[in-house]
């Protein structure tokens, strides 16, 4: 079985990478993952302020700033892409089947 874990919070704390790295609980969790040998891919996302939401309706690409506001949409999958810039990510997102009735939220990975 493969699982995608969606790590969620309300962004009020948003520790820096360094703070996260120094946190004992986080260190223990990472060590545990390594010991189990289970991690295929992991990425920390930039806060929602850096998010862009893409929808395709009748062949038109609709781009909105921020995360999709109507939270009736649930995450149904995760794809990680490595591309040139946001415009290319929008182009890729707009081509996904689900963009035609749902939405694809683009969140830059915190590198």
């Amino acid at each position: 079985m493969k699982y995608v874990l969606l790590i969620c919070d309300d962004e009020t704390r948003s520790p820096s990478k360094e703070e996260l790295k120094a946190d004992p609980t986080h260190q223990a969790w990472e060590a545990d993952l390594e010991r189990r040998g289970v991690e295929l891919f992991g990425a920390r996302l930039r806060p929602t302020a850096a998010a862009t939401t893409v929808r395709s309706r009748n062949g038109e690409t609709l781009v909105a700033d921020g995360p999709f506001a109507e939270t009736k949409d649930f995450v149904g999958g995760v794809v990680v892409v490595d591309c040139a810039d946001l415009d290319e990510a929008i182009e890729i997102a707009a081509g996904h089947l689900y963009a035609q009735w749902g939405s694809v939220e683009i969140r830059p990975v915190w590198e």
């Binding site: 946001l86 683009i106 830059p108």
Partner: peptide, 24 residues
């Protein structure tokens, strides 16, 4: 500040968009 940060962090390209994106 937020807008400039988003341009950098989300990778908004510094360019004139190509023809297919231009009208929008």
């Amino acid at each position: 500040v937020r807008a400039k940060r988003k341009i950098a962090e989300a990778g908004i390209p510094y360019r004139v968009p190509p023809a297919e994106l231009l009208p929008e």
